[in-house]
């Protein structure tokens, strides 16, 4: 059979980001900086706008020949266009008209400059934070799922551990900072503990409630098919509780970000939280923004990854539960 060819075509909406970007670029080049603007001028924002313009022009060309991609991009175009428009307005409000105090609200080109000049150090901080987060997060997740299974499955574990969870769990893990910093040999291990604790609690609670909520009939059928108790736990209880476990992990993820930042601002050397705090003390707000943008990009990337993993593992839920 001949491969079906889609007719080439242009969705007018795909042009929105390009128009928005062109407008930004024209205004940025034509309007001079405010006469009170004392800082040196850079071309980083211009460069950024030109780069984006090139990217979205290429995207536009691809959409002409690719129907599915065209549909997707057309749908997103308004949002992207408005986002660039807002950035444009911010640029006007800062460097061009100086409507807001420039020390706290630096112009885009200054923020972009930080990424160029201080990028390597930001990456180093990111790496440090990442190491801390991954270690704490994974240990919290694994321990949380294990405790959740034990508490949800066995009545004696439930008897001994559940009260502990109820008392320890609700304490925000950042409240442990003073103790953690003296109880652990290094600030790194202390932070790992705090992040782990932050993830452990919601994961444990939702895993155990998921496990104890599994339909009895599943275990009965499984037993008459020859499954042992261990198999009932890992082949019935855990997969069946997976939706609940994922909610726990999600809550834990958000808690871990919060704890990571707090821990770094309070005692850890290096890391993004520390960087932001340090730059704030030095009153270099452009660096603070650069740090915040780095955090936003990384964390949303992590959350997206988690969503992808869930969609893959819980594919059977489609049609059972509305997402």
């Amino acid at each position: 059979m001949e491969k079906k060819k889609y007719p080439a075509g242009l969705d007018i909406r795909v042009l929105v980001p390009i128009i928005s970007l062109s407008l930004s670029l024209i205004l940025h080049i034509l309007l001079p900086a405010n006469k009170n603007y004392t800082q040196k001028e850079f071309t980083y924002y211009t460069g950024f706008l030109i780069l984006m313009l090139v990217i979205y022009t290429v995207v536009m060309i691809i959409t002409i020949f690719h129907k599915k991609f065209r549909k997707k991009m057309a749908h997103k175009s308004w949002f992207i266009g408005v986002a660039f428009l807002l950035l444009n307005l911010y640029n006007l409000a800062t460097i061009k008209f100086m409507l807001i105090p420039s020390i706290y609200f630096p112009s885009p080109e200054i923020i972009f400059k930080v990424f160029i000049k201080d990028g390597a150090f930001l990456l180093k901080c990111l790496g440090y934070s990442g190491k801390l987060l991954v270690t704490g997060y994974l240990s919290g997740c694994i321990l949380g799922i294990l405790t959740g299974i034990l508490v949800g499955w066995s009545t004696s574990w439930n008897y001994w551990i559940n009260p502990v969870i109820k008392v320890i769990g609700p304490i925000p893990s950042t409240a442990w900072v003073p103790i953690a910093l003296v109880a652990f040999p290094t600030s790194f291990t202390a932070s790992v503990f705090l992040i782990g604790l932050a993830v452990w609690f919601p994961t444990t609670v939702l895993t155990s409630s998921g496990i104890s909520g599994v339909k009895q009939a599943y275990f009965e059928v499984s037993s008459t098919l020859g499954a042992s108790t261990i198999q009932n736990i890992f082949k019935i209880a855990v997969p069946s509780a997976m939706p609940s476990i994922f909610i726990g992990i999600f809550n834990g993820t958000c808690a871990s970000f919060l704890t990571l930042m707090t821990a770094e601002m309070l005692g850890v050397k290096y890391g993004l939280g520390w960087y932001i705090n340090w730059q704030k003390d030095m009153l270099s707000y452009p660096n603070v923004y650069a740090g915040l943008i780095t955090i936003a990009v990384t964390f949303s990337l992590l959350i997206t990854l988690l969503f992808r993993a869930r969609d893959k593992i819980l594919v059977w839920q489609k049609g059972v539960i509305k997402w």
């Binding site: 599943y218 019935i236 997976m242 059977w316 839920q317």
Partner: peptide, 9 residues
């Protein structure tokens, strides 16, 4: 009730 395991095909 068929009680098929919903997470398995």
């Amino acid at each position: 009730d068929p009680t098929l395991f919903p997470w398995l095909n």
